[in-house]
Write a protein that binds this DNA or RNA. Structure first.
Lengths: 202, 202
DNA sequence: GTCTATAGGTAGATAGAC
DNA sequence: GTCTATCTACCTATAGAC
């Protein structure tokens, strides 16, 4: 572990601490300890708490928005695209189960700054292609006409929310983390089926 | 404002500060200032930061779980109950638009403690009645048979998630807070219609 | 590059005057 | 009940020895 480049050790430690504790509860001391470097070194490498946090947050946010854009902008028929989104996006969420809560928490802590900063970046989420496709598919009779933006929100909500409410759901069902992942794996088919039944033309 | 009972002023200030900043970023000084009382008074009234926070969190959590239980345990046919839930729960969310992010953030910050503490309380969320009703309605052919727990999750997700992702959605659509509320008011009918189309028997 | 020491600030909590 | 003053602990960040 100590073999790895110091810069990388610092950043990995920062990711771990910030995503677990959030900006306010995190400390530079803890990041330094976890990276096995001296506190002073963080500043030698031109980091401060805010810069380190912004890098971690942007990486986390980009993880989710890039994958979503990838799928939304791909060249697939609407139903396949919905299936691909549910399947691949939930895979991503299962691989990073605590990142969604981190992003949502910090995003709501400074909403104006978030809107200002993130929405000017190239990696911002952009479902416009998908929304247009839903609109056109409805007009062409391929699917039941639905409000395209709200449909996008339905899709995203059903995939992401269970990971935000995870502690509550684990408490309700009295299940452990592994069982939770199994439940989410099973959920993919449930979400796809639920959506497909809703958008079948009358 | 200074007329109000000191205890109530303290608690109102605590609610405001904690829900806006979260536990870690909140300070007793700020709560005291907002309540127009001396810092020392907070401790005179036997409060400390943790106790004050727990009261605020429990109140916020109970707000959402009590209303949900109320609807889930009411005596209504399944379709009416779904409509009532979407309508009344989204009303509650619109009336407290920043509480969901607060609850989800803090809940994920200490998941084990949350599961231990909240799930033993009388006001914990309990959708078991609703889940059973969905199961029975499916068997009776009133609705298409669906996985009852995942269906409950679909319903909750579509109502709550848009309030958690609010800054992102406002950024995407370039709309202000008032327009957002209008969008959510409109959303009620979209969610109800989306669900109804999905659960119509084949 | 890596360390120690410390500056400078703010946090929660308490003691005691009034 | 309400105030001031203060304690202890921790934070970020920096200066400077090695």
């Amino acid at each position: 572990m100590d073999q790895i480049d110091v810069q990388k050790r610092i950043f990995n430690a920062a990711r771990e601490v910030f995503t677990q504790k959030g900006f306010a509860a995190a400390s530079m001391r803890e990041i330094a300890e976890k990276a096995n470097v001296n506190k002073g070194l963080l500043h030698y490498y031109k980091w401060n708490k805010r810069k380190l946090f912004l890098r971690v947050f942007e990486e986390a946010f980009a993880t989710f928005s890039l994958r979503a854009n990838e799928i939304f902008e791909s060249d697939m028929p609407i139903r396949e695209k919905i299936e691909a989104f549910v399947s691949h996006y939930m895979d991503l969420l299962m691989a990073n189960p605590h990142l969604p809560a981190f992003v949502i928490s910090e995003l709501n802590r400074h909403p104006e700054e978030f809107i200002r900063r993130m929405m000017q970046q190239s990696n911002r989420p952009d479902p416009s292609n998908f929304i247009l496709q839903v609109q056109l598919a409805g007009e062409a009779g391929q699917i039941r006409p639905v409000h395209p933006f709200h449909f996008f929100l339905h899709l995203l909500s059903m995939c992401v929310f269970p990971f935000l409410a995870r502690p509550m759901i684990q408490g309700l069902l009295k299940i452990d983390g592994d069982t939770y992942i199994q439940l989410m794996e099973r959920r993919k088919a449930e979400v796809i089926s639920f959506i497909n039944h809703s958008i079948n033309p009358d």
